[in-house]
């Protein structure tokens, strides 16, 4: 069933896939981000309670959702690396880690900036905020652990274990607002119910979410390409590639 995936266990094929995907990801990311943010920030109606301040939702919610999404993708890559032992699995894991960490930081930062005027506090140690902060520490832990080993195969294994263990935090973040009393409100769109947001506000949010996803994909392909080239420096195909690039320039 998953036969079509197998070629990408080889670094050369994965590199080529990144080269093919990259322009499409960039174009989609730029289009979606431009449409989503301009629509959301300039044309969507004001909120009945929060007025214009609610517009930070068009940055906060996509980055928060994708900070969790990227972590899950990273953990899946770690699982593939552990069980199927693909060479490219740990490489894509570590390619995603800093991108996800930045998304988590953006979510925390925009959340604080939103919380100050609306709630009256930059930070509260409630379950949602604290578990999202732990997510940031998990990302940093994965990056640090990977950097701590000289042998990158070993590094991938260690960081992969950490990424997999940390995945228990994802459902905790998502359900924290239901399981405990928190200052953070409940889920608006990521629930099995109708979204609690008016359609003319929801559309730009979904487009912005897509834009963030494409953007993460685009940055990840760049990072994966450079990671592959760095690790496979001595392979003939990389050396050929390097020659071709230097001749063209």
């Amino acid at each position: 069933m998953w036969k079509w995936l197998h070629p990408y266990a080889k670094t050369e094929n994965a590199y080529q896939l990144c080269v093919t995907l990259q322009p499409w990801l960039w174009v989609s990311a730029l289009v979606c981000l431009a449409v989503g943010t301009v629509w959301g920030l300039a044309f969507a109606p004001q909120d009945y309670q929060q007025g214009d301040s609610f517009r930070i939702i068009y940055i906060h919610v996509p980055s928060a959702i994708l900070s969790m999404g990227t972590y899950v993708a990273m953990a899946i890559a770690a699982l593939v690396g552990m069980v199927w032992q693909w060479r490219t699995a740990y490489m894509s894991m570590i390619a995603m880690a800093p991108v996800g960490a930045v998304m988590t930081f953006i979510a925390l930062f925009t959340g604080a900036a939103w919380g100050k005027p609306m709630w009256g506090a930059w930070w509260v140690w409630d379950a949602r905020l604290t578990s999202e902060l732990i997510l940031l520490f998990l990302y940093i832990g994965v990056i640090a652990l990977y950097g701590a080993f000289e042998d990158k195969q070993q590094a991938g294994k260690a960081a992969g274990v950490m990424a997999l263990v940390g995945v228990v935090n994802i459902p905790i973040i998502h359900y924290s607002v239901e399981w405990w009393n928190t200052l953070h409100q409940g889920a608006t769109i990521s629930k099995f119910d109708q979204p609690s947001i008016a359609p003319e506000m929801l559309w730009p949010l979904l487009i912005s979410l897509l834009g963030f996803a494409f953007f993460i994909g685009a940055v990840t392909t760049i990072r994966l390409r450079s990671e592959i080239v760095r690790r496979e420096m001595h392979r003939p195909w990389v050396q050929k590639l390097a020659h071709e690039t230097s001749e063209n320039s």
Partner: peptide, 27 residues
């Protein structure tokens, strides 16, 4: 010593809120 406001997860334009909840938004 500290009072924080909690808001719900609903977002809607003022006109809709006025129709549905009878809340009138004023700056």
């Amino acid at each position: 010593q500290e009072v924080l406001a909690k808001h719900d997860e609903e977002y809607m334009p003022p006109e809709l809120a006025e129709k549905m909840k009878g809340i009138k938004h004023e700056k």
